[in-house]
Amino acid sequence: MKNAKNIYKPAYAQIDNKTPKICRISGVEILPSKIAWEKYNWTKKYFQKKPKQGYFIWVKKNISSYFSTCVSIAAKNTKQNLQNLLVIEKNLKVNLQGICNSQRKNLSGQHKAQGKIILKENSALKYEHIQSWDKSDIVESDYQFILEKNSKLDYSYKNFQSPKKLKINTRINTFEKASANLNIIINSIQSDININDILILKEKNSSGIIKLRLVGKENSRISAHSQVRAEAESKGHLDCQGLLVSSEKFHSELACRRGRIVEKSIIKLIPELVCQNKKAQITHEASIGKISEEELNYLRMRGLTEKQAIDLIVNGFLEA
């Protein structure tokens, strides 16, 4: 039952800039980052400067269920600036869900988060990072992962309610035999999105996959630069796919507002492979498409409205 409670109550919950609520979990030390900075001298090498906000999570023992963190914006014009540190000790397996969101519309919030995630030898982390924002919010997220020998990362960033502006930087360093799986899934509606991710295969037999699924709707602008760099004998793959979506409803709304039909979503994908070792195998695939008229008509002839049909196709694309 204790574990069941952990599922529903976040281990770390912060609303606006208020003092966070922290839940005790056996085998895990959770502190506000600024306290961890003072308590543990070793954290200074991970925090660039003394943090003001954010969480420090140190997993020291195995925990049977997953735990979660939740950072929300609830008051208008809130500016958050978090510096997070997550350390997973050797041989441990951890499931984590991180939620960041705005609780209402038109709050014009700013959420900035910098994070370092350290996976020690033989550890494994499955991390689902779910974001949900409003069209008035601005969000910046900068995460760095260090995967020590034989560790395993499965990180999914999911954003189905995009903010006005979103900037995501992700950097993964993999050491000997470590493996990384990075999924970035974004459904962008009237958003300006900038993604930079890099997977560095630093040591022998490390491996990783970067997978991007990006949907651009209603005048969204998405730019994604993804790089796999092989510095040692290693394997890496980059899979970037974009889907441009237009709908009749949006067209007619725009037509009323501006007197003409405009559909200007743009997706720019820049996949990059850098090979510094002749025994490394790195590959990539990238594509941008639109929803096929035939698929849409087929689903409408099964009784779905155009919007339902688009949603079904988009959700399928994002989950694929």
């Binding site: 096929s292 035939e294 698929e295 087929y298 689903l299 002839m301 099964r302 009784g303 779905l304 339902q308 079904l312 196709i313 959700n315 399928g316 694309f317 994002l318 989950e319 694929a320």
Partner: peptide
């Protein structure tokens, strides 16, 4: 349909549930 289109990513069971 005689030649129904393939829809990548969408599970057939999901469509059945929806319709």
């Amino acid at each position: 349909w005689q030649n129904p289109p393939a829809i990548k990513g969408v599970k057939f069971s999901n469509l059945l549930k929806k319709i």
